[in-house]
Nucleic acid binder design. Structure first.
Length: 287
DNA sequence: CCACGGCCTGATTC
DNA sequence: AGAATCAGGCCGT
């Protein structure tokens, strides 16, 4: 077992970030967060100015490098703050949810996660994904902990639709099977999408079954470095209608286009913060 | 192009 | 308690 320190200059709130609806497999245990990155299990603990990383992998340099990318520590934070801070609502959210970060996750896992998220709840997505991992992923044992790796395209392609339904995927099981089959057969590494312009990458993703504009944008934003992606779900649609008269008066139905024109190339960050804002507000109202 | 119903299923609401 | 409704969409008509 190793313990290493991940240093960062700008705030990271683990609780906020890992439960913001970007990632679904982190497990909180007190103030520890346990997750699976590739084939390694890591436990994170907030130390204020840094994060302590406990892991069972021999190559700690590799883990640190992975985490630096995962939390996007090389983003130009000042530029992001300056660009987005011009909008009143986003500025408020940036302040209120300090430490909420965009993640860069594995594209394959993110793709399946957001296909699963369609007309579902975060709790259910977590449940389904954990089921997928336990049924079809490789078992990983680390000391006293045991988790499972996210199944590869091959592992999911081999599963029957019925087996996939057994973990609670419902009508999404067919999408998962078809996508896994296609990716496995063509031996595609989804990272290639990172080198494509946003529009082309989105178009490619939307060619897959079960992937429309919203899911495609989630995959692009949360795993492929496309910060101009702006996932529009019912919450965000509501936010824009309620808070942005300029949007309400719009002549186009293309919400994404409006958002990028309005928020700029970091529109995805704006979405992340606005989503957190509306979700927290609505939780508090129901209390 | 737009509008609409159907889709699995667990949780929440009435 | 049991039935309706909803939940971070997408697809076919």
């Amino acid at each position: 077992m190793n313990s290493v320190i991940l240093t960062h200059h700008n705030p990271i709130d683990l609780e906020l970030t890992l439960n913001s609806g970007q990632a679904f497999r982190w497990i909180r245990n007190g103030n520890l967060f346990e997750g699976v990155l590739g084939d390694s299990l890591v436990t994170l603990q907030d130390k204020g100015e840094s994060i302590e990383v406990i892991n069972w992998d021999s190559d700690t340099e590799c883990i640190l490098k992975h985490l630096r990318r995962y939390f996007r520590l090389d983003d130009r934070w000042e530029e992001i703050l300056e660009t987005l801070g011009r909008d009143m609502h986003v500025a408020e959210a940036l302040l209120r949810y300090q430490g909420l970060r965009l993640l860069k996750q594995d594209p394959w896992e993110t793709l399946i996660a957001f296909v699963t998220s369609s007309v579902s709840s975060i709790a259910k997505v977590s449940y389904c994904l954990e089921g997928l991992c336990q049924q079809f992923g490789r078992r990983l044992n680390f000391g006293t902990s045991a988790r499972c790796a996210f199944p590869t395209p091959y592992e999911l392609a081999r599963a029957s639709e019925k087996e996939l339904r057994s973990v609670g995927l419902g009508f999404r099981a067919r999408y998962v099977k078809e996508i896994a089959g296609y990716i496995a057969d063509s031996e595609i590494d989804l990272e290639f999408l990172q080198d494509l312009p946003y529009d082309n990458a989105k178009e490619w993703l939307m060619g897959l079954p079960g992937i429309g504009p919203k899911v495609a944008d989630c995959v692009l934003l949360y795993s492929l470095d496309k910060t101009e992606a702006f996932p529009v779900d019912r919450w965000i649609e509501r936010v824009l209608l309620n808070w942005y008269p300029a949007y309400k008066r719009r002549w186009t139905r293309d919400t994404h286009k409006w958002a990028v024109e309005y928020f700029g190339k970091y529109a995805g960050y704006a979405e992340l913060y606005l989503f957190q804002h509306i979700r927290t507000d609505s939780k508090q109202r129901n209390r």
